[in-house]
């Protein structure tokens, strides 16, 4: 499956990502009442055993938000970031001064899930606009634990068919604070082909 992806496929995925990031930034800025900038510096295939390294190593504490995606091309999405980056993101989302958030209590957990929801919704809307495949996110679930443990469910789902995973890096910037989060898109085996067919690059 991954062997069939050309540079042109990556360009299309980056374009979907950038438009999604633009939509997400607008939605988040409306929510927090301040400008937020988002960018997708890269969309890439990463070997399964290097994914945890991207988050700082398999033992590093991370926050992960998992959503199912329904529609004509079912998939799973995981939005993950190192716990320290999740705290910074929450400072931005909750209008706190930098360095304030230091734990994930109920308020922080629901704010983080809501952020994941908005981001995922924005990416899926972008993908819908390109493909018309009717992607709909399900209610998100949160896990905070070692990176390896948070990731392995998603990697296992992907690992049945491939040894690489599709990774969309996402950068957030607001008032001098910067956060990098990682979206892992895990299409069910036939879904990636359906997506590319709908994008007109199958």
């Amino acid at each position: 499956m991954t062997e069939g992806l050309s540079e042109f496929h990556y360009d299309v995925l980056r374009e979907v990502g950038n438009i999604g990031a633009g939509n997400a930034a607008t939605a988040l800025a409306q929510l927090v009442g301040r400008p937020i900038h988002m960018e997708v510096p890269d969309v890439l295939w990463v070997p399964l055993d290097e994914v945890a390294a991207r988050l700082g190593g398999p033992e590093k504490p991370v926050a992960g938000i998992l959503l199912g995606v329904e529609g004509e091309a079912p998939a799973t999405i995981l939005f993950a970031l190192p716990l320290s980056q999740a705290y910074t993101l929450l400072d931005i989302m909750l209008g706190r001064s930098p360095g304030t958030t230091s734990a994930l209590d109920e308020l922080e957990q629901s704010a983080l899930q809501e952020t994941g929801n908005i981001l995922t919704g924005a990416y899926l809307n972008s993908l819908n606009a390109f493909t018309n495949l009717g992607f709909r996110p399900t209610v998100p679930a949160l896990a905070v634990d070692m990176a390896g443990a948070v990731l392995d469910y998603v990697l296992a789902e992907f690992g049945q068919v491939a040894d690489q995973v599709l990774l969309i890096e996402t950068e957030f910037r607001a008032e001098g604070q910067e956060v990098t989060g990682y979206f892992f898109l895990v299409p069910e085996p036939p879904s990636l082909n359906a997506i590319f067919r709908a994008l007109g690059v199958g």
Partner: peptide
């Protein structure tokens, strides 16, 4: 063999652990 996430609509894959 843990189940790290609990989704509202669990799938067969969620039981992977």
């Amino acid at each position: 063999g843990a189940q790290m996430f609990r989704l509202a609509q669990p799938t067969e894959m969620m039981r992977i652990g």
